[in-house]
Amino acid sequence: DTLHVTQDGKHIELRGLSEEEIKLVEELLRRGRKVEEALKIIEELRK
């Protein structure tokens, strides 16, 4: 699936995420994380 995010005035499209990963990214962003940080966390969880 694809998640569309706008952060720091930039539109970012995150592709290839599972539904659970999207929920996790959304939660991390709500808690003030940056998109880059959220993606690093997803990458770690995929290992």
Rank of each mutant, 00 (worst) to 15 (best):
K23L: 13
I22A: 12
E19N: 13
L28H: 05
L3D: 08
R31N: 14
I42K: 00
S18T: 14
K34Y: 09
R33S: 14
K10R: 05
T6I: 15
K34C: 02
E13T: 10
E19Y: 15
K10M: 14
E44T: 06
G32R: 01
I42N: 00
L24T: 07
L39G: 01
K23V: 13
G32W: 01
L14I: 15
L24C: 03
R31D: 11
E19K: 15
E43P: 00
K10F: 10
I42S: 00
V25I: 13
S18H: 06
E43N: 08
L17A: 02
E27R: 07
E37R: 02
K40V: 11
L45F: 07
E43A: 09
E37T: 05
A38L: 10
R33F: 15
E36A: 11
L3T: 10
R15G: 12
S18W: 04
E43G: 06
E26M: 15
G9C: 03
E21T: 02
T6E: 14
K34H: 11
R33M: 15
L24M: 12
R31E: 12
K40I: 10
E37L: 05
R46K: 04
R30F: 08
E44F: 09
L17Y: 10
G32D: 04
E36C: 06
K47P: 05
L29C: 03
E36Q: 11
V35T: 05
G16K: 04
D1H: 15
L3Q: 08
I12F: 15
K47Q: 14
L29N: 01
I22N: 05
D8Q: 03
G16V: 04
R15D: 09
L28S: 03
L14V: 10
L39F: 06
L45P: 00
K10P: 08
V5I: 11
L29F: 05
E44H: 08
I12V: 12
D1W: 01
E37K: 03
L14T: 04
T2P: 09
E19V: 15
V25M: 09
R31Q: 15
E44G: 07
R15K: 15
K40E: 11
D8S: 05
T2M: 09
I12T: 04
D1C: 06
E21W: 02
G32H: 02
R15N: 13
E27N: 10
D8A: 05
T6F: 14
V35F: 08
E13C: 05
G16D: 13
L3P: 07
E43I: 06
I22C: 06
E20W: 13
L24E: 04
R46Q: 04
E13P: 06
S18I: 04
T6G: 06
R31S: 13
L45D: 04
E27F: 12
V25E: 00
L17E: 00
L28T: 04
E20G: 12
E26V: 15
K10W: 13
E19H: 14
L3I: 12
D8V: 04
E19M: 13
K47W: 14
L28P: 00
D8M: 03
Q7A: 07
Q7N: 10
V25A: 06
E19I: 14
K34V: 07
Q7C: 04
G32A: 01
R46G: 02
L3G: 10
S18C: 06
L29I: 13
D8E: 06
T6L: 15
E26K: 14
R33T: 15
E37D: 11
K34F: 06
R46L: 03
L45C: 04
L28I: 08
L28R: 00
E37N: 04
G32I: 01
H11S: 06
T2I: 14
E36Y: 10
E13D: 10
K10N: 12
V35Q: 03
R15E: 13
G9H: 07
E20K: 13
I22V: 11
Q7M: 07
I41S: 04
E43R: 05
G9I: 05
H4N: 09
L24H: 06
H4M: 10
R33G: 13
R30Q: 11
K23R: 14
R46D: 01
D8N: 08
H11W: 13
L14H: 03
E27Q: 11
R15W: 14
T2H: 10
I12G: 03
T2D: 08
L29S: 01
E26A: 09
R33D: 10
E37H: 08
I12C: 06
R31C: 09
E37I: 05
I42C: 00
G32M: 01
L14W: 03
K23S: 11
E43S: 07
I22S: 08
E21H: 02
E13M: 08
L39C: 03
L3R: 01
E26H: 13
G9L: 04
L39Q: 04
I12D: 06
I22E: 06
L28W: 11
K34T: 11
D1L: 15
T2W: 08
R46H: 03
H11M: 06
E19A: 14
G9Q: 04
R30D: 10
K40L: 12
R33E: 12
E36I: 09
R30E: 11
E37F: 09
